[in-house]
C-alpha cells in the first residue's frame, strides 16, 4: 500500500472537516477524491501532505507512519490549485527549487530539471518567469516541479480548475498520460465529476468529511452505494422517482432513481409531454412533464411540446432505502 489514511479526524473550531476517514491507495494508482465544495477533500490532501495536523487517526506512506512527520520528510509533492509558482524565479529555478534546498550538486540539479522539463514539455520555457506563461504552461511547470524530486506520492489539489474547458480536457489527458508513463502514486482532488470519472483508476466520493464510496469509476457510477453518490455523479443528475411516478413501481420506504440515459423515448411506455429540449453537442437533454430528464442523441431529440412515450427498464432503476438513503 502506498498511502493509507486510517480513522483520520480533523476539526476546525468545532466544525468537523474530516470524520473517521479511511482510505487506501495502492502503489502506482491514481485515486481521484471527488466531492462538493467544503466536503473536506482539500483538507484530506493537506493532512496527507503534512500541511495540517490531524486530531485523531494515522497516515501511512510506503508502510511508514508519517502522522507527525514534517511535510518535507514525507517525500510527497503537491501541485496546488493556483500552482504556487515562485513569481521571482525563472521556470528553471522554480523546477529545481526543491533540489537546491536539498543541496544537490549544480550538475545534478541541471540534469534533473532538464529531464522533468522535457517530460512535461516546458523545456523551451526554462528562462521565462511565471507571469510570462499561459495557464496551461504554468500547470506544466507546477507538474515538473512536483515530479523533479521523484516523490513517493503526488498530491494534486484541483490543478485543472483554473483552466478553460478546452485546456482542461487537454491537461486531463496529459496528467493521465504522465501517470501511465511514470507509474507513480497520485491522489487527485477535484469537485468536477467528469474529471473524476475520466481520470481516476478509482474514485473516492467525499461528503461532509466522510468517505461515501470508493471504487472504480464504472462501479461508483453504475452501482452508487447511496442516494448522495447516485445524485452527485452524472450530468444531468440521476432522476429521483417519487412514489407516485408511473415510471417505477411504487414501494413504501423506497426511493427509486434512474439515470437520464436510461430514460428511453419510443413507441411504448408511459405517455408524456416534452417541456424543454436542451442541446449539449452530441446529446440533448429532454425535460418531460413527468419530472424526469432523458438524455438522447441530438439527432433523435423530439420537438418541444411533442407527446412521447417513456420507458424505463426495471434493471436500470436504482433503489434506495427512504430513511438511510443506502442502496437496497
Amino acid at each position: 500500500m502506498s498511502v493509507a489514511v486510517r480513522q483520520v479526524r480533523k476539526e476546525y473550531d468545532g466544525v468537523v472537516a474530516l470524520d473517521s476517514v479511511d482510505l487506501e491507495v495502492a502503489e502506482g494508482e491514481l485515486l481521484v477524491v471527488v466531492g462538493p465544495s467544503g466536503c473536506g477533500k482539500s483538507t484530506l490532501l493537506r493532512c496527507i501532505a503534512g500541511l495540517e495536523t490531524v486530531d485523531a487517526g494515522s497516515i501511512w506512506i510506503k508502510e511508514r507512519e508519517v502522522t507527525t512527520v514534517r511535510p518535507a520528510a514525507r517525500n510527497v509533492s503537491m501541485v496546488f490549485q493556483s500552482y504556487a509558482l515562485f513569481p521571482h524565479l525563472t521556470v528553471e529555478d522554480n523546477i529545481g527549487f526543491g533540489l537546491v534546498v536539498r543541496e544537490e550538486s549544480k550538475r545534478q540539479v541541471k540534469e534533473k530539471v532538464a529531464r522533468a522539463a522535457a517530460v512535461t514539455g516546458v523545456d523551451r520555457l526554462l528562462g521565462r518567469k511565471p507571469f510570462q506563461l499561459s495557464g496551461g504552461e504554468r500547470q506544466r511547470v507546477a507538474l515538473a516541479r512536483a515530479l523533479v524530486r521523484d516523490p513517493d506520492v503526488f498530491l494534486l489539489d484541483e490543478p485543472l480548475s483554473n483552466l478553460d474547458a478546452g485546456l482542461r480536457v487537454q491537461m486531463r489527458a496529459e496528467i493521465r498520460a504522465l501517470h501511465r508513463s511514470l507509474g507513480a502514486t497520485m491522489i487527485h482532488v477535484t469537485h468536477d465529476q467528469v474529471e473524476a470519472l475520466t481520470l481516476g483508476d478509482r474514485i473516492a466520493v467525499l461528503d461532509a468529511g466522510r468517505v461515501r464510496q470508493v471504487g472504480t469509476p464504472v462501479e461508483v457510477y453504475g452501482r452508487p452505494c447511496d442516494l448522495f453518490v447516485a445524485r452527485f455523479l452524472g450530468s444531468p443528475p440521476l432522476n429521483v422517482l417519487h412514489g407516485d411516478s408511473p415510471l417505477a413501481q411504487a414501494r413504501p420506504g423506497v426511493i427509486a432513481g434512474v439515470r437520464p440515459e436510461h430514460v428511453r423515448l419510443g413507441g411504448e411506455g408511459v405517455a408524456a409531454r416534452v417541456e424543454l429540449v436542451e442541446v449539449a453537442g452530441s446529446d440533448a437533454y429532454v425535460h418531460l412533464d413527468l419530472g424526469v430528464v432523458a438524455r438522447v442523441p441530438t439527432e433523435e431529440r423530439p420537438a418541444e411540446g411533442a407527446h412521447v412515450r417513456v420507458l424505463v427498464r426495471d434493471a436500470d432503476v436504482h433503489r434506495f432505502d427512504a430513511e438511510s438513503e443506502r442502496r437496497l
Binding site: 501532505a49 500541511l51 511535510p71 510527497v76 509533492s77 503537491m78 493556483s82 504556487a84 526543491g98 534546498v101
Partner: peptide, 22 residues
C-alpha cells in the same frame, strides 16, 4: 498567497530560508 509558503514548506525550507529566499 499562503500556498507559496506551503510549497516552500513541502520543499523543506526553514522559516529563515523562506523569509530570505521567498
Amino acid at each position: 498567497p499562503a500556498e507559496l509558503f506551503e510549497a516552500a514548506r513541502l520543499e523543506g525550507m526553514t522559516p529563515f530560508r523562506t523569509w530570505r529566499r521567498l
